[in-house]
């Protein structure tokens, strides 16, 4: 595992608020575009395929290395 799983932000509340603020007033499509841009910008910054794959699996709720399956709540 290469993806950090311990808290790493000094002010998580501020980041969360900034994300909410960024989406304010956007319709559904614009919101999706904003998130997509964020993902692409951050993925390029990270630049490590293994970390990105791990994050993708985690977000999908799948165990790394296994076939993707929908997350259950």
């Amino acid at each position: 595992m290469k993806l950090r799983r311990d808290p790493n932000l000094s002010d998580p509340d501020a980041l969360y608020a900034a994300l909410m603020e960024a989406h304010r007033g956007l319709d559904e499509a614009a919101s999706r575009r904003l998130d997509a841009k964020l993902v692409l910008l951050l993925a390029n910054h990270i630049g490590d395929e293994a970390v990105l794959k791990e994050a993708l699996d985690l977000a999908r709720g799948t165990v790394p290395g296994q076939d993707a399956a929908p997350a259950t709540d």
Partner: peptide
Amino acid sequence: SACRAYRDAVLELARDLPL
């Protein structure tokens, strides 16, 4: 809509950002 969002996000970013 997700595929479209990523596609358009790439195209909007590409104009100014080489990345």
